[in-house]
């Protein structure tokens, strides 16, 4: 009986904690969105303009050369580059923004009892919100127009959920590690560039030699790109394996992020 009461109290406490966490995340995400749009009313357009411009550049440069890998269609190449760029730019800009959040909010964390994970998570939330208004609907439209397959279209949000989990996991790890290693932003810039180059965004995965293909697949973004292309551009029976792997890698990264953030929390609270 007593144990039962205790577990009930705990579950009430847990619900209250989750509610507070969400409330704090919301207000903190709103803060960064407000600040972002104060600077320029073009803020929304910019997050849209970035992948669009890149797509145009890549298509102009490589469209004709690589068209044969895409049923001879430059349009298919263009769409293929675009959906991949949406994934990679979201991941890169969010993680490099989230990297500094724990340190940047050090004064607040030193004064008010706020779960520190609020700051990296709200950074992901703000970026997610921005993409939900801009690029994500376009990806959905691409899927609707290209694949004519309601199941594929319905799987688009599932793939994006995996991406959000992956990004949150990296955001948690990076923001915690930045407390200990203040030069992490430089290193992350380099790693990010390697991710960028090794993601089969603007070249077909087929041009990568087989013996190093394995190393390319270690890049967590490679699975995300395969999955998003599977649901927006591919034909034939759905390769659920690709979607499963991308979702699983998202869940894994998220779990590692939560674990590492918790494990180092006590130590980094002493250093911010």
């Amino acid at each position: 009986m007593a144990a039962h009461v205790t577990s009930q109290v705990l579950s009430v406490e847990r619900t209250a904690y989750v509610q507070r966490f969400l409330r704090l995340t919301r207000i903190s995400a709103l803060r960064s969105l407000k600040v972002r749009y104060r600077g320029s009313a073009l803020g929304v357009l910019w997050s849209f303009g970035n992948p669009v411009m890149m797509t145009v550049v890549y298509t102009t440069l490589f469209g004709t050369a690589f068209a044969r890998y895409y049923d001879g269609s430059v349009t298919r190449y263009l769409l293929s580059v675009f959906v991949a760029l949406v994934i990679v730019t979201f991941f890169m800009s969010t993680t490099s923004e989230a990297l500094i959040t724990v340190v940047a909010n050090g004064t607040i964390l030193n004064k008010i009892a706020v779960p520190p994970a609020v700051f990296p998570v709200s950074s992901v939330a703000a970026n997610l919100y921005q993409q939900l208004l801009t690029t994500f609907p376009v990806v959905l439209v691409v899927a609707i127009v290209v694949v004519h397959d309601p199941l594929r279209v319905m799987l688009v949000p599932v793939v994006l959920l995996g991406l959000a989990l992956l990004t949150t996991g990296f955001a948690l790890v990076l923001s915690a590690m930045y407390v200990f290693f203040r030069d992490l932003s430089y290193l992350w810039g380099i790693v990010g560039f390697i991710f960028w180059l090794t993601s089969p965004m603007f070249y077909p995965a087929e041009v990568v030699p087989d013996r190093i293909r394995f190393w390319f697949n270690i890049n967590p973004l490679a699975q995300q790109i395969s999955a998003i292309r599977e649901v927006t551009l591919a034909h034939g029976s759905i390769r659920f394996g690709l979607i499963g792997i991308s979702l699983a890698s998202g869940v894994l990264a998220f779990a590692i992020g939560v674990w590492l953030f918790r494990a180092t929390r006590r130590d980094f609270m002493d250093l911010i």
Binding site: R20, L24, I27, K34, T107, N110, K111, I112, A113
Partner: peptide, 28 residues
């Protein structure tokens, strides 16, 4: 309510009202 050197953590870009809302929610 903590009153430990408060006033240092305001977001400089936000206006006063938004900072009040932000801080108030942070305070619980």
């Amino acid at each position: 309510a903590p009153l430990i050197e408060i006033g240092v953590g305001f977001d400089p870009e936000l206006n006063l009202v938004d900072n009040i809302l932000y801080y108030g929610v942070l305070l619980g």
